[in-house]
Simulated scan of single mutants.
Amino acid sequence: MAKAGARQGAKARGGFWGVVRAAIAAGLMIFVIGPVIVVAVYRFVPPPITFLMVQRVFEGHGLERRWVPMRRISPNLVRAVIAAEDARFCDHRGFDLEAIEKAMAANAAGKKLRGGSTISQQTAKNVFLWPGRDWVRKGLETWFTVLIEIGWGKERIMEVYLNSIEWGPGVYGAEMAAQKNFHVPASRLTVQQAARLAAIVPKPLSWKAAKPGPYMKRRAGSINRNARAVRREGLTACVL
């Protein structure tokens, strides 16, 4: 009886640790190995669809997107989005610590909330993850940001970013944004048009690039001035 009980106890413990090992293996696959594989594939293959795109379809916005390589995107747009979203894009390794510290200080002081996300972080979030601000998503965003910085490099990150971000209801990527707003391909965007597109990135469902109001005109003008500084100081050297 005692031996039988001991065998049953050992079997139960073995079953428990078997479940633990299976859970650990599943966690490693989901949170470590899986992301590495997906990032490696997307280094060469355009990401087909994102969680946000699916969400917007269910909201009734449709989906219009046409992938184009970097050589078919105007340098004006590259300079404008760097000026508007991440002036230190070519210098950091995915995370702008100075911007994060400023954002934290502003938030702690009760001022208007500011973000510290880089273009690399935005790309990781937009391409691989669901919309939201929970800690699990933020942790995965950090991991994917590290992976794309290592595995893709800056030019590929910018290419994926410009082809994936939302630029209006159901409009994704630079090519469709240029066509919808200005009736030109992304390769022919002017300095002013690029600044207007960069200006609406934070609120693409409510701000309009084609017919900007007074605030958007001022914002686009500021981005245009900053884009000139970006060009003058060579802040796009890692991309252009």
Rank of each mutant, 00 (worst) to 15 (best):
E85G: 03
R21D: 07
I200W: 00
L189K: 02
H92K: 03
Q55H: 15
V127L: 08
P69V: 04
K203D: 14
G18C: 07
N181C: 09
T142V: 14
G62I: 00
M1E: 15
A237W: 10
I24K: 11
S222P: 13
Q192D: 14
N107G: 14
P46H: 10
G234R: 12
L140A: 00
A10C: 10
I49N: 01
G139A: 05
M1C: 15
T190R: 06
T118F: 05
A209K: 06
R71M: 09
C90F: 04
E149R: 01
G221R: 10
K3D: 14
V36M: 09
A220T: 04
G170R: 05
R88S: 04
Q122W: 04
Y42I: 01
P214Y: 08
K102M: 14
R71I: 05
A103L: 12
P75N: 03
Q8V: 14
V57Q: 15
A108T: 05
E85P: 03
T145Q: 07
N126H: 09
Q55K: 14
A186C: 07
A25L: 08
A108I: 03
G14N: 07
Y161S: 01
R196H: 07
A195V: 04
R66C: 12
F58L: 11
R133S: 10
A186P: 03
S120N: 04
N163I: 08
I223W: 02
N76P: 01
A83S: 05
Q8I: 15
E233W: 15
I200R: 02
M216H: 14
A174C: 12
L97V: 07
I165P: 00
M53A: 08
R88M: 02
S187E: 00
W152K: 14
G9T: 08
Q179F: 12
L240E: 12
W167V: 01
A195L: 03
A124M: 11
I33Q: 10
A237Q: 03
M104R: 13
A87Y: 02
A40G: 05
W143I: 11
G168A: 11
L77F: 11
T123W: 06
A12F: 02
I49G: 02
A108K: 09
F58G: 10
A199Y: 12
V239K: 09
M176Y: 09
W130T: 04
K208R: 14
E155P: 12
A194E: 01
V201H: 03
F89Q: 02
N163T: 05
R114L: 10
K102F: 15
V184K: 07
G60C: 01
G170T: 00
T142Y: 14
R88P: 02
